[in-house]
Amino acid sequence: MLQKIKEITFVLSGKLASSTQSTIVFYHDVHLPQQRYTDMSTDMSLFKEHMAILKAEGYAIVPKIEQEQYQIQVCFDDGFRGIYDNKEYFIEQQIYPTVFLAISLIGQEGYLTEEEIIELQTLGFIFESHAYAHENLTTFNDAELKYELEASKSYLESLLNKPVNEICFPIGYFSDRVLKFCKEAGYTVLYSSLPGRYFNKRTDGLVYRNLVQFSSPKEFKAIVKGAMDSFLWWYRKKQYVKTEVYK
């Protein structure tokens, strides 16, 4: 019943918003029935439905958004290896997602190895930073936070042989101090987990993204149209940390 109410709410909100502005949708992983690495993973059958909806609605699925209308960027957080298991689908459909890697998770059970990351990058996948330890960045003191950001950037630039100037906050939490340290570390694009349109960036450069990993086809279509935009205040209340408590 709650799921049905949620779906109806999103559908109505999407109809009211009726936006075709370019936006980012994000997941954590994809899987086939026989191989699932995380409870946050999306079944490939549902993911394929999502991608089909985008194409039917006239959206282009692009590696990076450049136009204000009808472009969708797909992201994956954490670096689970289900995207590697299903890489043929991505290549066939010319979908080249951005994957945010937490350094401490690389090579762990259920996560991408360095070799798999390099292979996927060769195929067109884009890799950026998800910090080092995949923990709430607002809980680190200044020295620890500096290391989290700079060590991750250095490691990935060495592994990928390219500049790494984009970061996504682990678990979504951020603060003014985190934003400041990210910029000082050399990150120029800062991805949040706050819902909204891509070009509706905050003055501090924070980019909005929309979590859709468990969205039904009706919910997904509504979210792409802007259904979650009106809930930005609620997500901000949860994820924007005004008073930080260090470990």
Rank of each mutant, 00 (worst) to 15 (best):
W234R: 15
E7S: 13
S104T: 07
S192D: 03
L232M: 12
N200K: 05
C182H: 08
K15R: 14
Q73I: 05
R177Q: 15
E144Q: 07
V224E: 08
K238V: 03
A143C: 08
Q21K: 12
Y132G: 01
Y84V: 08
L190H: 07
L120Q: 07
P33K: 09
K55R: 15
S230G: 11
R81L: 06
K218M: 13
Q21M: 04
Q69F: 04
K225R: 14
K180D: 12
S13Y: 09
Y191K: 06
I5Q: 09
F47R: 01
P63S: 04
L211A: 13
L149S: 02
N200P: 01
Q94C: 06
L232Q: 10
A17M: 15
L46D: 05
E88C: 03
K225S: 15
Y240C: 00
K237W: 12
E157C: 03
T42M: 10
S129M: 09
Y198M: 08
L16H: 11
V241E: 00
F80N: 01
I117F: 09
Y155W: 12
E166I: 01
Y187K: 11
Y240S: 01
S45R: 14
D77F: 02
V62I: 14
P170A: 04
S216A: 08
Y155S: 03
M40F: 02
A222Q: 04
S192T: 11
T9C: 08
E166P: 01
A60F: 05
W233D: 15
Y246W: 10
V178G: 11
L112C: 02
A151D: 13
A185E: 10
G124F: 10
G14K: 03
Y37E: 00
L206M: 14
E109P: 02
L232E: 14
K153N: 11
S192V: 02
S18Y: 09
Q34C: 06
E109G: 02
C75A: 13
N161E: 15
L105E: 12
K87G: 04
T9E: 10
M1L: 12
H130N: 14
W233V: 05
K237V: 06
M44A: 00
D176L: 08
L160T: 09
K153S: 10
I223G: 01
H50K: 03
S230F: 11
L190E: 12
N210I: 14
L179H: 03
D229I: 06
E7N: 12
S193P: 00
L54Q: 09
I118G: 05
L46T: 10
Y191M: 11
Y84L: 06
R81E: 07
I126V: 14
P33I: 06
Y27R: 07
L112N: 03
L137I: 00
K242T: 13
G124K: 11
E166D: 10
D142K: 01
D78L: 10
D229M: 07
D29H: 05
S215M: 06
E128Q: 15
A102L: 02
I91S: 06
G107L: 00
R197D: 01
E66P: 05
E114M: 09
K162R: 12
E49G: 01
V245L: 02
N210K: 08
K48H: 06
Y235G: 05
Q94E: 14
F26M: 14
G107F: 01
E128L: 04
A52S: 11
I91V: 14
Y235S: 11
V164L: 09
F181K: 09
I95S: 08
